[in-house]
């Protein structure tokens, strides 16, 4: 694999760490965010399996991509996530309760109390990339902010990905496109999706820099994304960052990956997953012990459980709510339908 990393799978330091990765507080924050994302993920799946959440896309094993990218962003930047980037959304200030609401089928969960400028989860594959180019166009006019979109490896085969990448290149837009290459597009492995040597190579056609990093190393993800954002902020245009990770779970809760994927392959990738290596590094270099670990797990558990309780206690919306945000103000004919729908 040609991708670059700072920590290997066991947490050994491979090369000089960037400045932020020498600060224990920063590393603990990154680790905390990944544990929080994984705790949310486990609860979401449990809720779905017990009929209390809709179809859910797990981020298991890809927490470093989502968290690393979000951690590289400034508050005023805009995050445009695909459906698998809960860790990044949580880092940016979306609450677990909002995420549960959204995945439970309540659109109010996308009306974030926190990062108002961030986009809701983009369900159509790759549609967020043209959106990001558009946000970047608006930002280019004001001179402030960078648009950061994440999609999966599967998205890089789509026309809208290429069209957006091309325009980012042509117009020097302040946009960073991140590929969470988890190596599976539902049942199609990365190797069958494209003959491209790397997904980062796809930047070449747009005249953009493309870079591949180890997506299981949150330090590498954050460092590469930060450099890309820095270039965009400095007026040097966009970048494509490919983060190579692995989808340890199913595509979604509606999928059973064991039907098309060897258990042996999955087991091998468990050895490379992103949390262990950073924890090992924290233990070895920054005095992280069992007490700290237990306290973190407990606090994440308590937070997510409490959010789930609030979500489950949320009253279902009345029938007329389905019309609430169809238009900025409802045209008469639709208003009549909303009235007929009533409070039932």
């Amino acid at each position: 694999m040609p991708e670059t990393a700072f920590l290997d799978a066991r947490g050994e330091v491979l090369r000089d760490l960037p400045d932020f990765a020498r600060e224990p507080e920063t590393l603990r924050a990154l680790y905390t965010a990944m544990v929080r994302a994984r705790t949310f993920d486990a609860k979401a799946i449990a809720l779905q399996r017990t009929g209390r959440l809709g179809t859910y896309a797990s981020s298991l094993g890809q927490e470093a991509v989502s968290v690393g990218v979000a951690a590289a962003m400034a508050e005023e930047d805009v995050f445009l996530p695909s459906f698998r980037e809960h860790g990044g959304q949580l880092w940016r200030g979306v609450t677990p309760e909002e995420l549960f609401l959204y995945w439970g089928g309540d659109e109010r969960g996308n009306d974030f109390a926190g990062p108002r400028q961030d986009f809701p989860v983009c369900v159509p594959v790759a549609a967020q990339f043209p959106h990001a180019a558009g946000v970047a166009l608006a930002m280019q006019q004001t001179g402030e902010g960078v648009a950061v979109a994440i999609g999966g490896d599967g998205a890089t085969s789509k026309g809208d990905f290429y069209e957006a990448l091309n325009v980012v290149g042509a117009w020097d837009l302040p946009a960073v496109f991140v590929i969470n290459n988890n190596q599976w597009a539902i049942s199609m492995p990365r190797t069958e999706q494209t003959r491209a040597r790397t997904l980062a190579d796809k930047a070449v056609a747009a005249g953009l820099p493309g870079e591949q990093v180890d997506g299981n190393d949150v330090i590498a993800v954050r460092e590469a994304t930060a450099r890309a954002i820095g270039r965009a902020r400095g007026g040097e245009g966009g970048t494509l960052v490919e983060c190579v990770s692995y989808r340890l779970g199913d595509h979604t809760t509606a999928d059973d990956a064991s039907r098309y994927r060897d258990d042996a392959e999955v087991s091998a990738h468990w050895k490379e997953e992103p949390l262990i290596r950073l924890r090992n590094h924290l233990v070895a270099e920054h005095g992280w012990g069992k007490a700290e670990e237990d306290a973190l797990l407990r606090s994440c558990h308590d937070e997510i459980e409490a959010a789930a309780e609030r979500y489950l206690a949320t009253a279902p919306q009345p029938a007329r709510a389905m019309f609430a945000h169809l238009y900025a103000s409802l045209p008469e004919d639709v208003a009549a339908q909303a009235g007929e729908a009533g409070d039932g």
Partner: peptide
């Protein structure tokens, strides 16, 4: 724009979400 209907339509949508 380049010949990129899907691209510039989505770009317009993003720009509208972004305040233009």
């Amino acid at each position: 724009t380049p010949i990129t209907e899907h691209g510039f339509a989505g770009l317009g949508v993003g720009a509208a979400f972004g305040g233009l």
